[in-house]
Computed example of a mutant assay.
Amino acid sequence: MLNNRDCLIYLYEETRISRKKLHQLVGTGHRSYYHAIQSDALDLARFLSVKHRTLLAGALNNPARIARYTSLKRTYKTWTVLDADYPDVFRTIPDAPIVFYGLGDVDLLKTLKRISIIGSRQPTVNVKQRMSQLLLPLVSDYVIVSGLAKGIDSFAHQLACTNGGRTIGVIAGGFNHPYPYETRAQFHDMCRNQLVISEYPIDVKPERYHFPERNRLISALGFATCIIEAKRKSGTMITADQALEQGRIVMAVPGDILNPNTQGCHDLIQQGAKLVQNTQDIEEEWRENKVMWKSINNK
């Protein structure tokens, strides 16, 4: 029989049932999810169809699959919503991860000063210079969070790694399938020396819909999300919307008005995002919001 924590991980990995359904299972308060599913407890019918209940019961009635799960040698950290060390920042967002995984220095999730840096995968030529000027004064004090994509994400991680800083990468597939190819070496280095997290079991390949799911975790982890460059229609702009939905601060760096890569930033500034021209603008926002952010981190 699996305890509740193992039952959540097992069902998540083996059946790929939705986070919403598993959150509802947790919300029932059953002392044993295993027994509740096996006995087809009446309250499960409120949110699980017959098909879903049959799927879950079938997985729990499969000794070979359970044996494979219990014998798996995990070289990575696994968190569930039932764990005392599950990050409180995730508990504050809609559709929080029910299970997620980490490789590297897991204590980085306990660091208070974290800022999310996102932007275009195909940035303009001078963006590295602008990012260095803006972020280098921060890397000794802040954990830089980004998505390990090529372009601005990759350079944000690189700035931290090569200047004695700390960084967290959030990926859109399992650890056995780092993506994209261009950042694989960086992925492996960060798994050893920084932290990489994923919401997906290790053998799951990245899918298109995983990226907006991944992005909500990037924005959740930072006290603010700073957009360096973004087109009007882009994943970066979706992340900015997610940050606002989560009650996080959104910052944007202005640029050339003729550059399509900066149009998204200008739109955000017009809509009330913090205009970031220098490092002091970020530090000012931290000073004004650190008490609020501390309360979110220690719910």
Rank of each mutant, 00 (worst) to 15 (best):
D105K: 13
V250A: 03
Q129G: 15
H188G: 08
P123E: 02
Q280P: 01
A64Q: 12
R121G: 02
V143G: 04
K73V: 13
P97A: 05
H35R: 14
L244E: 08
R232S: 14
T78L: 09
L42C: 11
G173K: 02
E14M: 11
L11R: 01
M251R: 01
Y69S: 09
R214I: 01
N261D: 10
G272L: 04
A149W: 04
S32M: 07
R74V: 06
T92F: 09
R130S: 14
A240G: 03
K77T: 11
E284L: 12
L44P: 00
I9N: 04
R192K: 14
K73Q: 12
A149T: 02
Q186R: 02
A240S: 06
L72G: 08
L109I: 06
L25W: 00
V291S: 13
L25P: 00
T279L: 08
E213I: 15
A96D: 05
V81S: 01
Q194A: 12
E245M: 12
D6R: 09
L11Q: 05
H30M: 07
I98C: 08
Y34S: 09
K113V: 04
T92R: 13
K299Y: 10
E284R: 12
R19P: 08
Q194W: 04
N3D: 15
V26E: 06
G264F: 04
P180M: 00
R214N: 07
H177T: 00
L275M: 14
V250H: 03
V50C: 08
G173R: 01
N193K: 11
K205I: 10
R130F: 07
G173C: 01
I98N: 01
K51V: 14
D256I: 07
A240I: 01
A185M: 09
I93Q: 00
Y76F: 14
S116K: 08
S295Y: 08
Y179G: 06
A36Y: 02
F187Q: 01
I115Y: 00
Q24I: 06
R46A: 15
D203L: 09
R130N: 12
P178F: 07
N62P: 05
T75D: 15
I9C: 01
R46Q: 14
E13I: 02
